[in-house]
Design a binder for these strands. Structure first.
Lengths: 342, 342
DNA sequence: GGACAATTTGGTAGCGCTACCATTTTCCGC
DNA sequence: GCGGAAAATGGTAGCGCTACCAAATTGTCC
């Protein structure tokens, strides 16, 4: 066995190796790397040469310890496989890829308790910013966010009482708009089919209910929900249930596009005509909605843009200029398609 | 302005605060937290009480710096929104949620250069393990992996020459199996439709070609590919192109399920009968495949399990017992459905 | 040309934790 | 009851970096 190197770290070049080679003080190297404009042209060149020659890469752990601030964005989403959050996360990643910030992604599994645990873990790293999905944090989580000592952006939804900043849209309005569209199209026995029923789904349901009540069409038997995670096959099953419960059903507003697709397939399978016999509206407007036959009406949401905007706001806050607009509503768009064109 | 606290870190309790309160040495607290069995029952209790009372949370950055090892799994995937990788990542997250390990997720965007850059960044943190998608790393990436000084698991594919460990399956065999199934079902003008054409897609194509040549059916005009990222709408367009090129086409093996779904919808739209006029096979077997009408034959792959297995192997290696089986082939399964039931 | 400010560079002292060793205490077996 | 090993505890010295302040150098204005 070879005796371990005297240096515990394992012999990677350190900042003082670079400093020695460049003939400057260690702190100057540190500065040249972080605030190049504060170091003279000449030293900067020498230092860069030494860095390249030694293959020096700063140790983020040491950096974080010394500066009491890690170059990490903490991101908390309820699901990794749900395309909706995947798009938000992609927006976040793309916006951060050219920055020095790393991303710490946490999956809360739609659990408030898990969110608290992850917030605790993330907080212990002193992140540069925190991005969390939703606005329904537990009191404990909310406190953790308030005391995080960094910019916080709540995404996906807007609401009256941000911890710090918010980017999203109103799910209630989205649900209402979708339902009103069906009513205008002439449907009247309009069902709601919702899986998972997380807070955002609940608010879409509330929007549905508001629209239905305003039109005098609401009937609790039209609503079919389950806490089970959403999927295309679940959409099919729930549609069957809804139809068994209310055979006169003539349209469905679906919680999301997966459910809507399941409904469409079941209609095909049982030769129910869409949009003639049944109208279908989805939510989120995944790519497949416009390709489906018939194409499916849906509420287009700007997921990728939400991720990008959240990062932009956090970055601005880190840089010191808090945006005057702390709540950004990116809205949504009703995409009218064949599935509701009676 | 209030004078900043004397302590730079911002006043969070440290290990020596705990030590003082519990009336022990700092190192004993450290041990009680990391190797409780090496500390007496009594001190352990005292220390735990002090930890709870102060709300002490260890600083992972300080820990990483002192021990030259961060409790981080680096995970590199080519896409965050592709459901296939999302499932793998979910398996990884679920397997690691009860461990002290954090996850650093990187998105390479299918770029070798980006992979190199991220490997460099990840490596600078001294991760506990590295999980990377694919087996086609650039020479630079491969060197970085070999020198990472931690267990490395390559996932999604198997191949002859692992950096360290591997979990996946043979995409070539998958492509061959899918194609052979179509041949057995009586199709003969079988097209291949592939988007993105990353290395895994290339190997599926190679499997297709092998099967077609073995049956004396291969014709280069049957192959339609594009480097454009895959989507349902792209599947529809490519199917149109393929049909325009070869009007006698009687089946398609699709690169993945999104493409297959696009093909199915286009068949509906143009009243092409499935499986009578056109047979369809997908790849990955997303949930929607069995719900589609007609249901779509696909190659079921075990994505979630790949993630779990990769973590299990890495964890074992960290614990010191390298598994005797360094290459794990989880295989795949042909799911025969209506879309090929002539 | 001298007083003063602005710019550039460097030294010191930690950040919070653990590796490494030293020391103390406990437990054996005979 | 005693030597020696094992178990339990502690002290010291960093890990690699940056905040904070001090010093040196340059520029500017009258």
């Amino acid at each position: 066995m070879i005796k371990p190197r005297s240096r515990r770290g394992g012999g990677r070049p350190t900042i003082s190796d670079v400093a020695r080679k460049a003939g400057v003080g260690a702190i100057t190297v540190s500065r040249a790397l972080r605030e190049p404009e504060r170091v003279s042209e000449e030293l900067r060149r020498q230092i860069q040469a030494a860095v390249d020659e030694l293959g020096y890469v700063p140790d983020p752990n040491a950096r974080a310890l010394a500066s009491a601030r890690a170059e990490v964005f903490g991101v908390l989403v309820p699901s990794l496989t749900n395309n909706v959050f995947a798009e938000v996360v992609r927006g976040i990643y793309d916006s951060l890829s050219d920055s020095p910030f790393r991303i710490q992604l946490g999956n809360t599994h739609y659990s408030g308790l898990e969110e608290e645990r992850l917030l605790q873990v993330f907080g212990s790293q002193r992140p540069a910013a925190l991005i969390v999905a939703g606005i329904d944090q537990t009191p404990v989580s909310r406190k953790l966010l308030e005391n995080a000592g960094c910019p916080v952006v709540q995404v996906m939804e807007t609401g009256p009482d941000p911890v710090d900043m918010m980017v999203g849209f109103s799910h209630l309005d989205g649900g209402r708009t979708a339902t009103e569209h069906l009513i205008e199209a002439g449907y009247c026995r309009i069902g709601f089919i919702g899986a998972r029923m997380d807070p955002r789904s609940q608010r879409r349901l509330a929007g549905y209910r508001a629209a239905m009540e305003a039109a005098g069409l609401f009937d609790p038997r039209l609503v079919t929900t389950t806490p089970v995670p959403s999927s295309v096959s679940l959409g099919r099953e729930m549609f069957r249930d809804a139809l068994a419960k209310v055979p006169t059903l003539d349209a469905v507003f679906c919680n999301n596009d997966d459910i809507a697709l399941g409904v469409l397939f079941e209609c095909h399978r049982t030769s129910i005509l869409v949009p003639k016999t049944i109208g279908i509206v989805g939510f989120n407007d995944l790519d497949m909605m416009q390709v489906a036959f018939p194409s499916i009406t849906s509420i287009r949401t700007h997921r990728y843009e939400i991720g990008r905007r959240a990062v932009a706001m956090a970055l601005a806050a880190i840089a010191g200029d808090r945006p005057e607009q702390r709540i950004v509503d990116l809205g949504f768009e009703l995409k009218r398609r064949e599935s509701t064109a009676r």
